[in-house]
Design a binder for these strands. Sequence first.
DNA 1: GGATTGTCGATTGTCAACAATCGTCTTGAC
DNA 2: GTCAAGACGATTGTTGACAATCGACAATCC
Lengths: 255, 255
Amino acid sequence: MKSARSVKLDRRSLDWRAADVLREQILSGKLSPGQRVTETALASQLEVSRGTLRAALRALAHEGLIQQVAYTKWMLPEFSHADAWELYTLRGTLEGMAAGLAAEHRTKDCVATLEAAFDRLVAAVGSRKHTRVAETDIALHKTIVAITGHQRLIDQYRLLELQVRHYIISSNALIMDLNQIIAEHEPIVRAIIAGKPDRAERLAREHNAPEVARALEALAKERTAAPPPRPEQPKTKTGARSRVGGQREPVKANA
Amino acid sequence: MKSARSVKLDRRSLDWRAADVLREQILSGKLSPGQRVTETALASQLEVSRGTLRAALRALAHEGLIQQVAYTKWMLPEFSHADAWELYTLRGTLEGMAAGLAAEHRTKDCVATLEAAFDRLVAAVGSRKHTRVAETDIALHKTIVAITGHQRLIDQYRLLELQVRHYIISSNALIMDLNQIIAEHEPIVRAIIAGKPDRAERLAREHNAPEVARALEALAKERTAAPPPRPEQPKTKTGARSRVGGQREPVKANA
DNA sequence: GGATTGTCGATTGTCAACAATCGTCTTGAC
DNA sequence: GTCAAGACGATTGTTGACAATCGACAATCC
């Protein structure tokens, strides 16, 4: 699916291709969280003009892979436990919706695609290579989302998936139990193929529950360890807000 | 909430302010679906350079308010019944999640904010002004999303909400039963305040069910009316895809 | 000595000129 | 008359230069 259409040359504009390269760099962990990047440096590295590179950076900002501080700098985001909670709760909801829709609107082609994706996951587990398992795992979930035909769900899931991958790379959260992987995914796939939307939705949603619980646990531990959750005040005295989403609040600190 | 901070001057860069103006123009229906817009015209209209305006257009494209055809044109999206189905199914899911989280993590401040938003909706209904009702309706849902403190949910809901507003304006779907509005929203608000996540989630989700049903009905009618759903073939013979999402498929046509 | 103000280098923001591409119209052959 | 090839105009893509802004350090004042 990646280098299949190698004959057709890439007609997309430079900024999109630059964004692809940068996205790959970020998601492969070549740039570390909190690290600052400058437009001039990246532009000369990729051999494009600064304007073109700016457009690429902006696209990545919309995807949540980089943050911009107006007139000041670009920097890689840092992930907290609250971010993990956000990512996995949202993922559970979107994947649940996708699984439900997939079970409802499945066709012969859809089922075939889904089974192929699941088989690739099984093969990956057999190979005992964690990286390949992680890739095929994500690919399976993307397949479930794709066969819904729900373009807006596909788009929003992509935004989320990119951030999840970034989080996993950034926090070395690649640990997984290879023996559990199949058992976790098979029921979801079967429910979709069997055409049971409610069951598929519930299973897909619960699939993310362990990660959510882990994030909540870490959040609680963090809070008891540091009673006043204000380790340092930012130096800026003006109320100038970041352009992309602003700084994160200590989410749900007072429930 | 709009002109309260009038003393502080706007520090954001030009492209962001240009995006604000254009977004307002689109959401107020000044530009019609399918209409083509050219960078030069908009740039001279807003009195900014083309590069700056390009950045603004790109931001709107990420929000789904405009579409770009590479090397060719920018155009306003046209909404089909499939789009309505996508918008309201996704909205049901996200609002359901938000209502559930809000019921879980509610605080005194949250409840007060929520009640204030609901009171504004009641007042709007009392005024019998459809526009105001639509505004406060959306504001109430945004409030529910906001009090979750889930920044990524807030961001994704914003993307969706902008498109929903665009759809409503574009398709003159502003019709509503003023007498029903309160009865539809009050149970959701009460469930959140009462701290019943499951009930809040279910109610918020079902709140969008009528619109989903309407979209499905229209889709079915459309399909029986035109058996071969290929009214015209696009003229482009190359496989060049649109840069933003590509053309929409006749979603779930073969379930 | 402490706080305020001014200066400087670095970085981002904006612009206008130039290049590449697309859709359409014209032209010509068959 | 129909089709294909080429030229043209319009529009988007890309670039390098210039302006605005920021953070940090230095100078100044009290």
